[in-house]
Design a binder for these strands. Structure first.
Lengths: 173, 173
DNA sequence: GGACAGGTGTGGCAAATCGCCGCAGCAGGT
DNA sequence: ACCTGCTGCGGCGATTTGCCACACCTGTCC
């Protein structure tokens, strides 16, 4: 299966690309919107994995273009923070599925093959604890700020010192 | 506009029904799956608001039936705790939009009319503050526990007294 | 080189918060 | 009546938070 991986975070992209290759995919990579479109035209992949946040531009805008160029391709959106409205927007624009980072390579592959990944669908009665939710959100925002603790703290609305103290502790299990 | 409101929580249903009537809708109500289908056959509404959790049964299973009976109707899913996978599942089954409680009557009406509610869609780079995320999660879990503060507190992993104190304060803006 | 801005790690301290106890009231079931 | 479970409230010690300060490092600009 030919897969086009559009993702600006290089370490994450290469890791995922390697994992997909190991699972038998032929992987093309792109780090920005223009490279993504030219790669798509050149390779005509059957599967696309698209990050929502490509540097400054919005990956969402790429969905219709990709869909028009490759109507038959399987288009998966991969995003860091994700919300229900943005997920619905993505599928309205033509995406087939919508995954949250960190997503395992198996989850991505299952989405590319069109399987419903039941492991990602929480049971009806299971609710994350407050501490766990907080920790996951902190990790997401921190990664979103490129590891910049000061910016992450102000985005989270808490003191930089408090963020540092929270990061120094063990994640809740 | 004829609207069918399928929701088992009576107080929430009557409140929302009143609000929709005040906005010019003709509202039919149903509290369970069988009543919903017979009401749908009788009234042939143009709009449907469906709660995901109807007592013991799963509202998700109703979506294909309703869609088959009323292919032209606007079908909105309304759910208490909600997740991205379940939102995608709902639209795959034929829902048009997916809202989280607590949703204002204006939000519901906007969804019924097919407007994209931009107020619910965060800008691409905007990240919710920790306090806001915590507050929303608390509201969700609390509603999911049927308003039972003790159960919600233990589900959240915090003390009951702490939950009471948090609830006594204003939501973050 | 020197000045400067921005990010990070560390410490201290008052104020706010949390966890945990108790108590009383009130509804529902036996 | 009795017991069980949920709720609201107060208090107290332990923990956490917000906000200061300071030193260190890394670039950039003059």
């Amino acid at each position: 299966m030919q897969v086009l991986l559009i993702e600006d975070d290089e370490s994450f992209r290469t890791t995922l690309a390697l994992a997909l290759k190991r699972r038998g995919c032929e992987v093309h990579q792109a780090a920005n919107a223009t490279a993504a479109m030219s790669e798509a035209r050149a390779a005509m992949p059957q599967g696309i994995v698209l990050d929502m946040r490509l540097g400054s531009s919005n990956g969402m805008a790429l969905i219709p273009e990709l869909r028009q160029l490759l109507p038959e391709a399987r288009l998966i959106v991969l995003t860091g923070y994700g919300s229900i409205p943005s997920a619905l927007e993505a599928v309205r624009l033509g995406a087939d599925d919508y995954l949250l980072k960190p997503a395992s390579a198996d989850q991505v592959l299952a989405a590319l093959e069109g399987h419903d990944d039941s492991s990602a669908r929480p049971a009806a009665g299971d609710l994350p604890s407050l501490a766990r939710l907080e920790w996951e959100h902190i990790q997401r925002v921190l990664h979103d700020c490129g590891g910049n603790i000061s910016h992450a703290a102000s985005a989270l609305g808490i003191d930089r010192r408090t963020l540092q103290r929270k990061l120094g502790k063990q994640p809740p299990g």
